[in-house]
């Protein structure tokens, strides 16, 4: 009976840890999606936004690195890498994640508007509970 109780408690703690990690993963996905599809989207000369195309000017001028999701505050850091002859990295923008808290890193594909060209790029988001 004691062994069974220990087993249940251990499984519950593992479930909690797993749920926390899943929540952080979903929040990171949510932040990345919002940035790539809305906040950092390149808008062309006629005012039409292009989903999945990141404007480097908007990326460089990003100042708010906190988001409230589900009543909790999360901090994040972003960077963007692309190849144009050689590998280039824009960023990272935002503070480094705290060492004492778990963080989640997500890298997604995107396009970068650079010198009137649309280049394939990798957009990285690191998020943590603030």
């Amino acid at each position: 009976m004691i062994t069974f109780v220990i087993l249940v408690v251990s499984a519950y703690r593992q479930y909690r840890a797993s749920s926390e990690a899943a929540l952080l993963s979903d929040v990171t996905s949510s932040i990345a999606t919002h940035l790539v599809l809305e906040e950092l989207v390149y808008v062309d000369s006629v005012g039409k936004p292009s989903a999945y195309v990141i404007d480097p000017v908007k990326l460089g001028s990003l100042t708010k690195f906190k988001r409230g999701v589900g009543g909790e505050n999360y901090g994040f850091r972003v960077s963007l890498s692309y190849r144009s002859g050689m590998e280039h990295v824009l960023g990272p923008y935002g503070t480094a994640p705290p060492a004492d808290r778990p963080n989640c890193t997500l890298v997604v594909g995107a396009a970068l508007f650079e010198n009137n060209r649309l280049l394939p790029a990798k957009f990285e988001v690191v998020a943590w509970r603030a």
């Binding site: 993963s25 990345a32 292009s50 995107a110």
Partner: peptide, 20 residues
Amino acid sequence: ATDRQLSLKSGHIYGALDKA
């Protein structure tokens, strides 16, 4: 959650190929 992230990544790779 891992599956959801992978699904998101496939959508973003599609988006990147559609625009780049």
